[in-house]
Nucleic acid binder design. Structure first.
Length: 679
RNA sequence: GCGGGUGUAGCUCAGUGGUAGAGCAUCACGUUGCCAACGUGAUGGUCGUGGGUUCGAGUCCCAUCACCCGCUCCA
């Protein structure tokens, strides 16, 4: 059974040294996490099994590690600078937030025309070239609106004016520019400053004036101005600090890469030539990537700093594929399948039976993205998703995209007109290379197409942790103990019923209520369901107490402590990780720590293995507790040295999932463990 | 950014204006012949931060910071 709530996994991670909140001493920074001693082991294992399968096990792959910082031009031509920004608007009435272009797509033609009518006479669009940009096409209209609102804000916002004059002062003082040069440098304000009558009232807020409807309630919203969210982290190359938006600052600007893929595209020819590769072949890369996510969260599921494992697999374009050769669509399918099997293989411990394997498979699925979900570069994308516990539920863990020849063409300097048109690209005047390939077999020159399987390392770790987490009942609870829980639950119910009545009475009298009757009722229903299914549902009892409706109920508080203690007695927490993923592979214990010969022998066995994989020695508790501790962090094997060991040089090897023990000679240990750990 | 919630020991939390607590964890000593045993003791806190009310504030008031959940998304 996998984790029932994300909370369980988060707690385990924090207490057992997998993941710690970042910068905790200073109150923490949302979305940044530090990986502890066990976390770093596991991340390394995830990366290792991926690299082994993606690079070593194949004949058609090479590796790469490109720089995190690249020329800003890379991101201009890849489309990220223009597309990796989301203009968002809020409805002050419904408190809903939308992406502007998505919102416009859901408006009627009349509304879109109304917006155009408002924009056309506005001073923002008086220039003929600007006038042409106004059209009822949602995407074009979105960018026109963003530009328009920014101009409006520039003219009415005091703080913006102030910032502008400060910037101007710095430019003049420090860089010695004239007033005229400052005006030209400041590309953000092509419209001269005017008095407040410059914009008609409806021109100040076209979205609200044109009665743009909120899809949530179908009524016209009270909209905020669209704000641009650039999802890329900006930094500067060079130690000189320049004032914002000055030419010096803009020239030094760089982005932390939002994906590792572009580094591969730029090195396509380097790798192909130096390794004498023929298409089809692929390049794999792992590394950190950074995205200023608007909403990070769900623990390490979506973070602003994360690590990717990406493959760009270069294939023949469809128009050149001959008889019997795989098409782009077939290659796409093959990679989806390949990657899906990888996820399943490492989510399944070797001890799993057929029933377990089927259950695991049900929590992984492939999902083809709909046309309107696709990224700007993709022809088709299929996501591999995992059913995470709790509200997170189905979440993407890998995307396998058909990126066509978009990226390689976008970075090429010399591209035929028809290809630019087909890919909706502008000619690239910055690049001095053409990323094409001469196919010696077909005797043709072409820009390869690309299939991209792209997964997150940290997200993979979360996936495997959630899937491996189990709270197993190991000691059959007595009927008496079950009855105790039942009677406690009955008491909670009694008390809660009273609180519900009181709350309803207060609510009727217009008074503030301490309890939300609906929530409390929902909690009671859940509790009843769990109690009815006892003892099978034993592991759900404590989780139920976290229900929002259980808050502020006295009997619940009293119930929690003894129940927690009871649960600790009858159950064990075990991470059923695939051995390849387990942070610690082996733990060695002495049965008696005050018998020096036993201790010495145990430490000797630890030394035998520690250079091969992470091995620990522990004698700080009774043998039962030592086993449980290792179960909790997924250590697949424990070795115990006892009195018999001193006589015949055999030890007890205990397996994590089955808790079965086997007597193994010390001399056979290496064989025994290496085969089972697949090392 | 908006709405809601939470900040007390390493963790989970109790503390309803009057001496800062419990369980777990950690450490030491003793005991312990294979699945979260026991005994004794110890370590650990400017109660998120700043201000106010009060004889007295963890508790009431104001401000502020941080984190969590929801909204946009996606590896």
């Amino acid at each position: 059974m996998p984790a029932k709530s994300l909370e369980q996994v988060v707690n385990l991670c924090k207490t057992r040294g997998f993941v710690f909140p970042g910068s905790a001493a200073y109150g923490g920074v949302a979305s940044f996490w530090d990986y502890g001693p066990l976390g770093v082991e596991m991340l390394n294992h995830v990366k290792r099994i991926w690299w082994q399968e993606s690079v070593y096990a194949r004949d058609d792959m090479e590796g790469l590690d490109a720089a995190i910082l690249m020329s800003r031009k890379v991101w201009q031509h890849s489309g990220h600078e223009a597309t990796f920004t989301d203009p968002l608007v809020d409805n002050r009435e419904t408190k809903r937030r939308y992406r502007l272009d998505h919102l416009l797509k859901r408006q009627s033609a009349e509304v879109l025309e109304a917006i155009c009518d408002i924009l056309k006479p506005a001073p923002t669009f008086t220039a003929p070239s600007r006038q042409a940009t106004i059209s009822p096409d949602p995407e074009a209209l979105a960018s026109a609106l963003i530009y328009h609102y920014r101009e409006v804000q520039t003219h009415f916002s005091a703080s913006t004016d102030q910032m502008k004059s400060e910037n101007a002062a710095i430019l003049m003082d420090v860089f010695g520019l004239t007033e005229d040069e400052v005006r030209r440098a400041s590309a953000d304000s092509p419209v001269p400053r005017a008095d407040s009558k410059m914009f008609e009232p409806e021109q100040r807020d076209p979205l609200t004036a044109a009665a743009v409807l909120d899809p949530a309630d179908g009524k016209p919203g009270k909209w905020t101005a669209p704000r641009q969210f650039n999802l890329m982290f900006v930094t500067h190359v060079g130690p000189v600090e320049a004032a914002p938006n000055t030419p010096e600052e803009i020239a030094a600007r760089a982005y932390l890469r939002p994906e590792t893929a572009q580094g591969i595209f730029l090195n396509f020819k380097n790798v192909q030539r130096s390794m004498a590769r023929k298409v089809p072949f692929g390049i794999a890369q792992m590394g950190k990537a950074f995205r200023n996510e608007i909403t990070p969260g769900n623990f390490i599921f979506r973070t602003r700093e994360f690590e990717q494992m990406e493959i760009e697999f270069f294939i023949k374009p469809p128009q050149f594929t001959g008889e019997g050769e795989k098409t782009d669509e077939q290659w796409h399918e093959e990679w989806i399948d390949q990657r899906y099997r990888w996820w399943l293989r490492y989510a399944t411990p070797p001890t799993a039976g057929n029933v377990e394997m089927e259950e695991i498979e049900e929590r992984f699925r492939k999902r083809a993205q709909a046309a309107d979900e696709l990224a700007h570069y993709a022809k088709a994308t299929t996501d591999i998703e995992y059913k995470f516990p709790g509200s997170l539920s189905w979440g993407e863990i890998e995307g396998v995209a058909n990126r066509t020849d978009f990226d390689l063409t976008a970075h090429s300097g010399d591209v035929p007109e028809e290809d630019l048109k087909r890919l909706k690209l502008e000619p690239n005047k910055d690049s001095n290379q053409t990323f094409d390939y001469f196919d010696p077999d077909a005797k043709q020159r072409y820009v390869p197409w690309v299939i991209e399987p792209s997964a997150g390392v940290t997200r993979a770790m979360l996936t495997f942790l959630c899937e491996a987490y189990d709270e197993e009942v190991v000691k059959e609870p007595t009927k008496q103990e079950i009855d105790q829980i039942k009677s406690d639950a009955a008491m909670i119910k009694n008390n809660a019923e009273k609180k519900i009545k009181a709350a309803e009475k207060d609510a009727a009298a217009g008074k503030e209520t301490k309890h939300d009757p609906v929530q409390v009722r929902a909690f009671l229903d859940q509790l009843e369901d769990v109690v009815n299914r006892l003892p099978e549902s034993l592991d759900e009892v404590l989780l139920t107490l976290d229900h929002p409706g259980a808050e502020n109920l006295e009997p619940v508080k009293k119930f929690r402590v003894p129940t927690e203690k009871f649960m600790e007695e009858v159950s064990r927490t075990v991470l059923r990780l695939h051995p390849a993923l387990a942070p610690i592979k082996l733990a060695v214990f002495p049965l008696k720590k005050n018998k020096p010969e036993i201790v010495e022998m145990a430490k000797g066995i630890k030394r035998m293995f520690q250079k091969h994989f992470r091995t620990v020695y522990d004698d700080s508790a009774g043998i039962g507790r030592l086993y449980r501790r290792q179960d909790e962090i997924g250590t697949p094997y424990c070795i115990t040295v006892d009195f018999e060991s001193l006589e015949d040089r055999t030890v007890t090897v205990r397996e994590r999932d089955t808790m079965e023990q086997e007597r193994v000679a010390i001399d056979d240990l290496k064989d025994y463990l290496f085969t089972r750990l697949d090392i």
